[in-house]
Computed example of a mutant assay.
Amino acid sequence: MSVVLKAEERAVRPRSIRKKLREEGRVPSSVHGNKMGNISFSVDAHELDKAIRENGLNAVYTLDLNGKKISTLLHTYQLDTFSRAWIHAEFLAVDMNEEVEVEAELTLVGTSKGVKAGGVLEQNLYAVMVSATPDKLPERVEVDITEMAIGDALVIGDLPAQDGFVIVNDSEEQICAVTEVSAAEEEATATAGEPEVITEKPAE
């Protein structure tokens, strides 16, 4: 999926220019890669927010810069810690015919048989690295766990072949496991459910 962002080239100096751009509702940005030098520009903050909200972080963002269309991926970005306002965004220019590697969220889908039987699901991996051409990059990878019983573990190598992309993590890396509830955990759960008993100090 490709999303067009209108970009305006900007000066790099003085540094106060970036603050002025943010005050005007624009995001100081840069793009590099795919045999092109670093170019500084800005995009509208609301348009960038909307594009990411609707298409995700792994979408192809086509920059319309000085009449030229540049296919990019959002490489890194910085937000204000408190206000979550944009501070800077860095885009990576890509060749649409060449594979790239990005991180995608890993989402467990369904309720396992083991959990229904009283087991506990432990998730060890929350994101994976995927390789694909830019237009095939997934925002997330869903993993069906409904058939997992108590004692089962799922590793990368257990996943079926994906359509359009490849997961490049080590095949033995564990995604999740369903384990039995330990005696200590059962005791802690039972204790947490017991009402507190308050006794009065006997009169002297």
Rank of each mutant, 00 (worst) to 15 (best):
L79P: 01
S29V: 00
Q162H: 05
E185Y: 09
S182V: 02
L154D: 00
E99W: 02
Q162S: 09
V181Y: 01
F91V: 07
F82G: 06
A149V: 06
I52A: 13
S182E: 04
I198A: 08
V3G: 09
G119Y: 03
A104G: 08
G37L: 05
M36E: 02
V31R: 03
K35A: 07
L57G: 11
A132Y: 00
Y77H: 13
K50H: 14
E180H: 13
T146I: 07
L21D: 10
L108R: 01
P28E: 09
L63D: 01
G110K: 06
D80V: 00
A104Y: 07
V168Y: 02
G151A: 06
G151T: 03
S83W: 01
R15L: 08
L92A: 05
S40L: 10
A93H: 04
H88I: 15
K116N: 05
Y77N: 12
K68H: 07
G56M: 09
R53V: 12
R22S: 14
H88Q: 13
D152I: 03
G114I: 09
E23C: 12
S16E: 06
G114N: 00
L73G: 12
S182I: 05
S29A: 13
T133D: 12
A59R: 00
Y77R: 02
K20R: 12
T62I: 11
D144E: 05
R140S: 13
I198L: 08
A183L: 14
V166T: 08
S182W: 00
N169S: 02
H32N: 13
T72G: 06
E142Q: 04
S2L: 14
K19H: 12
H88V: 15
A203G: 14
A127S: 10
D44S: 05
L21Q: 06
A45V: 00
L57C: 12
Q162G: 11
D135E: 15
N169C: 00
F41L: 11
A45H: 10
D49Y: 08
T111Q: 12
L159Y: 03
L74H: 06
N169D: 06
A89H: 04
M1D: 14
V168D: 05
M129P: 09
D158G: 04
D158H: 02
E101W: 02
E101S: 13
R26V: 09
L21N: 04
E9I: 13
Y61I: 02
A177F: 10
V12A: 14
K20H: 04
K20P: 10
H75T: 01
N66I: 02
E103M: 15
D170C: 07
K19C: 04
P28R: 07
I39R: 03
K68Y: 01
V94E: 14
Y126I: 14
I198V: 10
V31S: 06
E122I: 10
P138H: 04
T133N: 05
V3W: 02
A183D: 14
P195Q: 05
F165S: 02
E173L: 12
L48P: 02
V181M: 07
E172Y: 04
I167D: 15
V181H: 01
A127M: 06
